[in-house]
Design a protein around this nucleic acid. Sequence first.
DNA 1: TCAAAATATGGAGACCATCTCCATTTGTCA
DNA 2: TGACAAATGGAGATGGTCTCCATATTTTGA
Lengths: 192, 192
Amino acid sequence: MTADKPLRADARRKREALLATAREVFDAGDFFDLRFDDFARLAGVGTGTLYRHFPTREALAEAVYHGEVATLCDRARQLQATLPAAEALATFLRDMVDHIAAHQGLARTLATLMATRSGALAEGSRALEQAVTDLVAAAVQDGTVRDDVDAGAVMMALHGIGAAHDRPNWRAEADAVITLVLDGLHSPHADR
Amino acid sequence: MTADKPLRADARRKREALLATAREVFDAGDFFDLRFDDFARLAGVGTGTLYRHFPTREALAEAVYHGEVATLCDRARQLQATLPAAEALATFLRDMVDHIAAHQGLARTLATLMATRSGALAEGSRALEQAVTDLVAAAVQDGTVRDDVDAGAVMMALHGIGAAHDRPNWRAEADAVITLVLDGLHSPHADR
DNA sequence: TCAAAATATGGAGACCATCTCCATTTGTCA
DNA sequence: TGACAAATGGAGATGGTCTCCATATTTTGA
């Protein structure tokens, strides 16, 4: 997609170091508590180098988010290929909750980024949304899910779950949201 | 709740000016784009005065949010007093969407604040959640809503709606989320 | 009504994170 | 290996945040 420029050897090394460090910090949820310049020191890199590779904090986040999303999308495709549509959708959503539970820091970071609406996550988010859209469409197709509601609503609900990750009773509530959404999706159309 | 200290006359005037200005900026969604010192200038107040009254940006936001929440809670109580429980809940949720639609800037500001999780909105959020809890409890009581899901899930969904206010198709998706949640709430318990 | 005491003001400047710039180092290619 | 291109890193400029205190305003009480 982005025209690959042949990156020099040391450049790639530094870039990788930066990304590795970012991933850790990202996952620990300290992404916004850390002075940006310190990423550089942490990764054993000069400030200038950091800024050359990732002009903004958000650019760095985007790069990390990318890998994250790829994993989730693979998972979605895999489920879709091996399970009945409705079940694939349900499993994916429950898995998402597991995933967020297992990566609180990541959830926190993403929530902040979403809210700031730097737009930095646009590409990654679109990919994730596409995966959800496919799952929902398949379920609609075989008639197990109503057709008057689209995947956007599901994304919103997921967004809410991720953003609220710090609630005391998060896990139970997150599961409850998924339950509501799934049961709602299986309801017949309301008349109005 | 907070011990009221008899505020001096000019102090109250300045404080009010600050709040009025903040409310505008808040509603316009520019809350985080504006240099904090400029609030002072905008409100015709010195920087020092601003910081005396509201030590942080978040403190100022909290003060504004307070009034906002009070209105919504009143609305909830009023609905609860005049409509059957299930209908009161449904109406309130739909009204919330209307409200957010009518105050995009506010939604944006709140989403950012929530994500930053300054904790500044804790009190206001608790009040709002209490209102929703009451609505749900009443509906559970008279048997129109399942009892295995609590209000926290509804809050999460609302949170998601508010946080995603910048999606192109926001309105339709927000309505869809509410529909899913309401239909989900009216479903019988799932077995597992 | 008028000091004196208490309270509040405002803005100059300290502080600190972000980001730029370029002299130096490192890698690549012939 | 030499010469050119690519990349580095960190010193310092920039600009927003917040503190401090000399001055101004309000209140008190005699």
